[in-house]
Nucleic acid binder design. Structure first.
Lengths: 135, 135
DNA sequence: CGATTTGTAACAAACACAATTACATTTTTA
DNA sequence: TAAAAATGTAATTGTGTTTGTTACAAATCG
């Protein structure tokens, strides 16, 4: 199955930004159309990154910890730490082949710079911009 | 396991560029450290994109169809068509939630532009540059 | 104290990817 | 023309990843 953590996390953050208040994991799960436990797992990651705060007990839930204008999709991306967009082969090289011997280092650098390019783009998209598209 | 088709394809193309001639799928598989059938499947995709040509029969194999300087990693990326770097949720929206109702369109646009940013970066890396790093 | 919610572990189900086997087809060359 | 060697391709299996689900302790509010 494809990794949807980033999409789910953005959806959760957009809902929190849109509401401006506290939402519980059950309601967020309904909006994302998934399980509350899946939501709570993501909220933990977002909390670790300082993007949300969570509250136990009655009337508990989660809410943003920064202004929507101060949170970018790159912040969310880095918070959930999805697998690298380009997977580098970790296999043993074929000793007699110069290409095989150098590919790991080369692809590692390519994967890193490609991901940085994508993250730089995500940095330009703030939650505020997203919420403005909702209404 | 994460999708390694792009990494494998770049490795194959780098080997073909480095050699300059015809290499069979068995030898390429040894360099990549995978199965010849996996290599042949990728060669089919690369051929469809016009990047290589393949030859059946004795002394068959594959070779580049363009100069290494005229092939970018974006060409290879587009040839193998890996899954989108950002997976958009395809689930049914929650009708009463405006966030849920708009997220699909919003995330589709985000995923597309993010991928384009990454592809634009890959377009700057030619096979020739890669081969120069090998030796 | 009772109701409600998060935090978290443990396990099951669904899915994607690569490896492998097998064989028809194509091509070379002896 | 026949043997050898390579690709093209389908089908199946194995392995790992991700999500769903259940369960329950801890925390919080009224």
């Amino acid at each position: 199955m494809v990794n949807q953590q980033f999409t789910f996390a953005v959806h959760i953050m957009a809902a929190l930004a849109f509401s401006g208040g506290i939402i519980d994991s059950q309601t967020l799960a309904q909006s994302v159309n998934t399980n509350p436990v899946v939501v709570r797992r993501l909220l933990l990651a977002l909390r670790r990154a300082g993007l949300v705060e969570t509250f136990s007990g009655k009337y508990g839930g989660a809410r943003l910890r920064k202004l929507a204008g101060a949170i970018s999709l790159r912040d969310i991306y880095d918070a959930v730490e999805p697998r690298p967009v380009i997977a580098v082969s970790q296999r043993k090289a074929w000793r007699h082949c110069p290409v095989s011997c150098r590919m790991h280092a080369i692809m590692t650098s390519v994967a890193e710079s490609a991901e940085d390019a994508m993250r730089a783009h995500l940095a330009d998209v703030t939650l505020k911009k997203l919420v403005r598209q909702i209404g």
